[in-house]
Design a protein around this nucleic acid. Structure first.
Lengths: 252, 252
DNA sequence: CGTTTGTTTGAGTACGGTCAATGAATGTGG
DNA sequence: CCACATTCATTGACCGTACTCAAACAAACG
């Protein structure tokens, strides 16, 4: 895993001109690279001419911005949120390393949501036109692109089920389990991790108020299911957490 | 394997061997065909070797079914729903002519949701491997495919906002407005139309109980915003309906 | 014509939201 | 380094929206 040390500069985001090294990237299993041949990976990496670093709180893009590229997350943590004129705002996801940001923009050529860094982060800049060109030449890349797009649709559908049908505690339990699985996929501890987002952001994502999230955490802790200390979270009883979540896996 | 349950209809679906005539299809503006050159349309149409007709209540596919093709709707009305083992079920959409069914299946090679015909319907069968092959040759088709996929992501994000943030009456008003716009796009009346789905299916889609949907309808009718008689619906005051859908009670 | 399915409406309830107060953590500038 | 401000989190009391349960009715269907 590549670690990027941030100097204590208070500047805004910097563009990092640097050829992508997808073959060496620890996120191969998740990003656009999954399942590609060595030759395909080389060509994809050659296309990534720069990366972008963001400070906490900074926007990678905002709804309405012109669409040129998609952004695989290399490092850090984001939130994406859609909103309507009236001020309603919905957090639609918490992208983490390996996830790709920006696919919502293909349909209209402008981003449809905001993407905000929840901590200092780094993304690859993948010019979308060149990605389309390359995926016309390599069917492996083409199919992987389709799979990543499809995966996002499936994830959204599951979130709709959570928002439409689950009760508060069940939503929170499902959220923690999903986080846990995602950390496991990325080689981090699935049992203990840091919640990069606030209670309010969690609540927004889950269709709950922050107080309800806090109460759910307290209750789960009182029952010995989790141990939570501010943003630090440990799963004490995975079995029971899964029960509460309702074995929230899709049926086949 | 999943069994296909049929509700109250005796005949199964029929396959209709027939070359697609995309150029002549009234849904050109919506389907995969949008923005393609005549040559591209011809090639796409040549790939569609058959269609499929479904009776009301019949499943086009079920979660777990093997994925081979995507299905542009030619005629009729569908619902798609995801579920979990515990029995929770969420309606994720009501695809209508011009919409394309099945993109959720690309990610795993198996469908992730059920697609049920709400009335006698007809779809084109587009073998997905051939669609990928063709979209490697025609960048117009490739880009349109990406746009359709992206559009589904955007729509899902908006539905997450509805489910996470809106109040009951606001959800119902938004639902009716969306339907109205979709009918308009397809050349039907945007002011008066038939609700092809039951109150329960609407409620499921909107994260509400059927009684709540019914009450919302009654209230909107009492206020002179809509006129509803069973499945027949007429929008009486579009301005006010938009207000209710958009200008919900300011949360903050 | 009877049965099933779908819709409307009412009464009571519960879950999560609202409001409010307190405290902890983080960050800033003197 | 500390004082202060700000953000974030927890907890309690109360309230309101949407759910639950129930009954009556309408429509669709065999």
């Amino acid at each position: 895993m590549v670690t990027v040390t941030q100097r204590g500069c208070s500047s805004v985001s910097s563009s990092v001109p640097l050829a992508g090294h997808c073959a060496a990237c620890g996120l191969r299993e998740l990003c656009l690279v999954e399942g590609l041949s060595a030759a395909e990976i080389d060509r994809l990496a050659g296309m990534i001419t720069n990366r972008r670093r963001l400070k906490r709180g900074e926007a990678l893009f905002r709804a309405g911005d012109a669409f040129n590229a998609v952004y695989p997350v290399r490092l850090g943590f984001f939130k994406t949120c859609v909103s309507v004129q009236t001020g309603l705002e919905q957090v639609t996801g918490f992208p983490m390393p390996g996830d790709v940001l920006g696919f919502d923009a293909i349909s209209t050529g402008a981003f449809q949501c905001d993407a905000i860094a929840l901590q200092d982060s780094e993304v690859c800049v993948v010019p979308f036109e060149r990605l389309e060109t390359l995926s016309r030449q390599f069917d492996g890349l083409q199919h992987q692109l389709h799979r990543v797009l499809s995966r996002e649709i499936v994830r959204d559908n599951r979130q709709m089920l959570l928002l439409g049908k689950m009760r508060a505690e069940q939503r929170v339990a499902t959220f923690l389990l999903n986080l846990s699985k995602q950390f496991a996929q990325r080689g981090f501890s699935s049992r203990e991790f840091v919640l990069r987002m606030t209670r309010e952001e969690i609540g927004n994502y889950l269709g709950l108020k922050l107080e309800t999230v806090s109460r759910a955490f307290s209750r789960l802790q009182a029952d010995g299911v989790i141990a939570v200390d501010q943003k630090q979270l440990r799963i004490e009883d995975l079995e029971r957490l899964s029960q509460i979540a309702g074995a929230g896996c899709p049926v086949h």
